[in-house]
Amino acid sequence: MKFTDRCPATWKELQDYVALFLNQSGYRAVSPCTIDTVRGKVEVDVLVESPDELVKRIVCECKFWNSSVPKEKVHAFRTVVQDSGASLGLLISQAGFQSGAIEAANLSNVRLMTWNEFTDIIADKWTLTRLKQLKKESVPLSEYTSSLHFPFDNLKDEDVGRYLKACDKYRPLRTTCWEITRKDLKENDSLTDFWYKGSEFTTIESYLNFLSDQVTAGLKEFGEILANSNIIIPPERLEKSYGYIYMSL
């Protein structure tokens, strides 16, 4: 399954999508952003703060041009990256780069890439980060749908039927969120019905976003049932499950 089907149609979409994917991959990206350099203030398309110990700051420049980027633009961008103290510069071009631009970036801390190359590079980290979030978000569903753990006898009569319907609806979702891995997502051209409504999706991004939305809806539904029946699930019951959520990544 491919990572995404997003294709920027404007310069703003290009830099917004770059910032979005970086933020969702665990970085802190701001677009646009005015930064200080040794030559004064400069506005960059995307400024990225990285949790990595070695690469702390990344500057991104996005070119939504009809023609390939020339070497002069690479030289100018290299200066901004160097003068800002950034560890890495990403120059992302919709139309590619001239041969001189590629030579100008060689042996520097500037990387040149097309939109497709950027999504290929970010796909694995994005998928890993989103899977971790999804598995953590779905922890309460394990308690709510468990016949062994849920205090079924404490439900009000009016909530019993609603609760059972919610369990039937969200148990397959809970199973998918806990068991699906990056390998499952990447190696299947299309996800089968073994995964919760997986056959309806063609990209990893759209499917994981859908699962996250479904988890939110499920937690809301169970939350309303719990509140109506005055049931409180002790937080420590959920905390015991957190240690197992990353076993399948």
Rank of each mutant, 00 (worst) to 15 (best):
Ile102Cys: 06
Ala105Ser: 03
Trp178Val: 08
Arg78Glu: 01
Glu205Tyr: 13
Asn23Ala: 05
Glu53Thr: 14
Asn228Asp: 13
Leu219Ser: 05
Gly223Met: 05
Ser190Met: 13
Pro51Trp: 01
Arg171Asn: 10
Ser93His: 09
Cys167Trp: 11
Lys135Asn: 06
Leu226Asp: 02
Leu88Ser: 03
Thr202Phe: 15
Arg171Phe: 10
Tyr246Cys: 09
Gly26Val: 04
Leu128Gly: 00
Ser67Leu: 11
Glu103Met: 14
Thr216Trp: 02
Gln15Val: 05
Val69Phe: 07
Glu143Met: 11
Ile232His: 11
Lys73Cys: 01
Ile245Asp: 00
Met247Val: 10
Asn228Cys: 11
Arg78Gln: 09
Gln24Lys: 11
Gln98Pro: 00
Ser199Lys: 12
Ser68His: 09
Thr181Trp: 12
Val38Ile: 14
Trp11Ala: 13
Leu211Ala: 03
Ser212Tyr: 04
Ser84Asp: 02
Glu239Cys: 05
Glu103Ile: 14
Phe64Lys: 08
Ala19His: 05
Glu236Phe: 14
Asn154Phe: 09
Tyr144Arg: 06
Cys33Ser: 13
Tyr17Asn: 10
Glu72Asp: 07
Leu20Ser: 14
Lys2Tyr: 13
Gly100Asn: 09
Thr34Cys: 05
Gly100Thr: 01
Phe64Ser: 03
Asp184Tyr: 15
Thr114Asp: 02
Ser99Tyr: 15
Asp193Phe: 08
Gly218Arg: 07
Leu22Lys: 02
Ile58Arg: 00
Ile232Gly: 02
Tyr17Glu: 10
Thr176Cys: 09
Ser67Gln: 13
Asn106Ala: 15
Ala9Trp: 08
Tyr170Thr: 04
Val80Ser: 00
Ser212His: 08
Gln94Gly: 03
Arg111Leu: 06
Asn188Val: 15
Tyr246Ile: 03
Thr202Arg: 13
Tyr244Pro: 02
Gly26Asp: 12
Gln15Arg: 15
Leu20Lys: 13
Leu148Trp: 12
Asp193Gly: 12
Tyr144Phe: 15
Leu191His: 06
Glu49Ala: 13
Val215Lys: 10
Asp124Gly: 00
Lys71His: 11
Lys135Leu: 06
Thr37Phe: 02
Ile233Asp: 02
Glu158Cys: 06
Leu208Arg: 00
Val46Glu: 01
His149Cys: 07
Glu221Val: 07
Phe118Ser: 02
Glu179Lys: 13
Ile232Thr: 14
Tyr244Gly: 12
Leu14Asp: 01
Thr79Tyr: 02
Lys240Ile: 10
Ser248Pro: 00
Tyr163Lys: 03
Leu191Ala: 07
Asn66His: 12
Leu112Thr: 01
Ser241His: 11
Trp126Leu: 08
Leu88Gly: 02
Gln133Asn: 14
Gln98Cys: 06
Ala227Gly: 01
Ile204Thr: 00
Asp184Ala: 06
Lys197Tyr: 12
Arg78Gly: 01
Ala19Val: 08
Phe97Lys: 05
Val55Tyr: 08
Lys125Trp: 09
Ile122Gln: 03
